[in-house]
């Protein structure tokens, strides 16, 4: 008979700052008292905005905060497309290449970015500045080529010229911070 040799370790819980907890509390307040789990998607996106990705430690912290199993948090992280399950570049660039966008150069915009940054679709540049990936419908098909920057900002009508201009601005911003 096989014996279970896997050790189930409880992941370490990353402490949440007071500011983060205040943002969580605002989300939890929207739902009935016994349904705090409804806030899990918002809490995960808050963590991702603050830390750049969702680590196992962050999942455990959210689970503890909301009173739900860490695995139930992990199910959500892995089901939805936009949660980063590993660190990404300072600028995460998602270009829609679905059919309506493809008809208006969405695929071309993705390829232009990949070529300009010398990365494959889904890759991160060696300097850790950019992650580029295609994505599914952003719900802005009339604005194609359309893209999302760091999950929260949508850019429209992104011709190759505008993409170049955008990359230059981002590089300058990163240079300032360095």
């Amino acid at each position: 008979m096989m014996t279970d040799t896997v050790t189930h370790q409880t992941p370490p819980v990353a402490p949440l700052s007071e500011a983060t907890q205040a943002r969580f509390a605002r989300e939890v307040a929207k739902y009935p008292k016994d349904q705090a789990q409804s806030a899990v998607m918002a809490c995960l996106s808050i963590v991702q905005q603050e830390q750049g990705w969702v680590s196992t430690e962050a999942e455990a912290a959210i689970a503890a905060y909301l009173g739900m199993p860490a695995m139930a948090v992990h199910e959500v992280t892995t089901f939805y497309n936009m949660y980063n399950q590993q660190p990404v570049g300072k600028f995460k660039l998602n270009v829609c290449t679905n059919l309506p966008c493809q008809l208006r150069n969405g695929q071309g915009a993705l390829e232009h970015l990949c070529k300009s940054l010398n990365v494959e679709d889904g890759g991160t540049t060696a300097d850790g500045l950019f992650t580029v990936a295609k994505c599914e419908c952003l719900g802005a098909c009339a604005d194609a080529p359309v893209m999302l920057v760091n999950d929260r900002q949508m850019l429209s009508y992104m011709s190759n010229d505008k993409l170049d201009e955008m990359l230059a601005l981002m590089r300058a911003e990163a240079g300032k911070a360095a």
């Binding site: 995960l44 996106s45 936009m82």
Partner: peptide, 10 residues
């Protein structure tokens, strides 16, 4: 009335 956001799932 409250607002909720998804995170990428058709």
């Amino acid at each position: 009335l409250h607002a909720f956001h998804g995170f990428g799932a058709y």
